[in-house]
């Protein structure tokens, strides 16, 4: 995990964009907290710089599932 964060840092992405959580099978509140924390972090860091305008690689996969409104 540290190595992955280091790889991100090397290319110039914030390592905070990646985090690992240990979530037990019955630990729903922890899952909710993890999602909330990552959302807050991503909001604080701003969108992934790769997504913007011209730099957007043409071959990116679209996360939105078909039919999903976004």
């Amino acid at each position: 995990m540290e190595y992955a964060q280091y790889l991100l840092e090397e290319v110039g992405l914030e390592p905070e964009r990646l985090e690992m959580y240990e979530i037990g099978a019955s630990d729903a509140p922890k899952w909710v907290a993890a999602v909330q924390e990552m959302t807050e972090r991503a909001q604080a860091l701003g969108p992934n710089p790769l997504k913007q305008g011209a730099s957007h690689p043409a071959d990116v996969l679209d996360f939105n599932q078909p039919g999903e409104e976004k």
Partner: peptide
């Protein structure tokens, strides 16, 4: 995932 434009990645296990 980041290449494809994810703003953050959460690994849960």
């Amino acid at each position: 995932a980041f290449e494809a434009g994810a703003d953050a990645v959460l690994v849960g296990g």
